[in-house]
């Protein structure tokens, strides 16, 4: 009985975080992006600085007509948004928030679990691109697939570097082993991980697959209403997940300047939001990379860097053990 209650509480908490954090990040994007462009962003919905804008957007999406194109592959078309969204929920389950088991579920190979499930989300976008029966969506789908293949490798390699340094694949274990000087040691891996993570989310400046000025909205071109909202939610949930993983792997998770045991969850939240802010910041600051630049950057830039970091990690690891 006790176990069942505990599991229920954990599930509810993870679900609440899954619903809340993407909205917070979405709102932060509205606001940060607006101010970076000399605007104010939403100001009216909800009264105080438009805090309820995304809620209002959700209501709007829910009211929209539900359209499936005539030639679309209906089942796949309807399934795609869920495939794109749910993996991120499943990843959140293993992200440790605080010390002492403050985690949805502590998986032994948590790192591989997270990376594996995250990569499934991309299948959703590819499915959407194929099922829409639209040439722009198809192009977008192809680009999504190509981008995933290019950036999955540096992502995994840089994450593995952190696991190697900590000597464990468990996310909680990695945080436990983390020391502040790892920031310098794993800096390269952190950068590669963030860049590859942003690319995997198809966020600007790596948003060639959904480049709205060229191919409308890539795989999501034919989507409206709630399904479109699900894709958008998936994007923000993806930011949360990538930020959370970067926090856990490279920024020491719940370890803060003071009171790790009591305020651990707060440090985690602060760090996650900071990384999410950096992701938004990148979006505003840099222009979109061209498709060939994207591929070249991944294969000739990130992969060698990640390998170099692995080498460095191994050398230091052997030297200190």
């Amino acid at each position: 009985m006790n176990v069942a209650v505990e599991v229920a509480v954990r599930v509810v908490l993870v679900f609440a975080a899954f619903l809340l954090f993407p909205l917070v990040v979405g709102y932060m994007e509205h606001k940060a992006m607006a101010h970076m462009q000399g605007r104010l962003g939403p100001m009216y919905a909800g009264g105080f600085h438009g805090w309820a804008q995304l809620v209002a957007d959700g209501v709007k999406f829910a009211q929209k007509e539900d359209i499936v194109p005539a030639d679309a592959d209906r089942t796949v078309f309807k399934l795609a948004p869920w495939i794109a969204l749910l993996p991120y929920l499943l990843v959140l389950v293993v992200v440790p928030v605080g010390p002492g088991g403050l985690v949805g579920s502590d998986v032994d190979a948590g790192l591989f679990y997270a990376l594996a499930v995250m990569s499934v989300g991309v299948v959703g976008a590819v499915m959407a691109g194929y099922a829409s029966a639209n040439k722009f969506a198809l192009l977008g789908g192809i680009r999504v697939a190509a981008q995933l293949m290019a950036y999955e490798l540096p992502l995994v390699l840089s994450a593995v570097s952190a696991a190697m340094a900590a000597g464990t694949l468990s996310l909680g274990g990695i945080v436990g082993a983390w020391r502040p000087w790892w920031l310098a040691w794993q800096l390269l891996a952190l950068v590669v991980f963030l860049v590859a993570g942003v690319a995997e989310l198809r966020r600007p400046p790596f948003d060639m697959p959904v480049a709205d000025s060229e191919i409308i909205f890539g795989p999501y071109t034919e989507y409206t209403g709630l399904r479109f909202a699900l894709f958008l939610l998936a994007e923000y949930a993806g930011i949360v997940v990538v930020s959370a993983l970067a926090t856990v792997l490279f920024l020491g998770g719940w370890k803060g300047p003071v009171l790790d045991a009591q305020l651990g969850w707060l440090w985690t939240c602060v760090k996650v939001l900071f990384v999410a802010f950096v992701v938004i910041w990148l979006r505003v600051s840099f222009p979109r990379l061209r498709e060939d630049q994207l591929q070249r950057f991944a294969w000739m830039g990130l992969v060698p860097l990640a390998l170099a970091q692995l080498l460095l990690t191994a050398i230091v690891k052997v030297a200190i053990s």
Partner: peptide, 14 residues
């Protein structure tokens, strides 16, 4: 990055 950050902390024109 510096440009966008600077714009963010200066009052907006809206």
């Amino acid at each position: 990055l510096a440009t966008t950050l600077k714009t963010m902390v200066t009052p907006s024109h809206t």
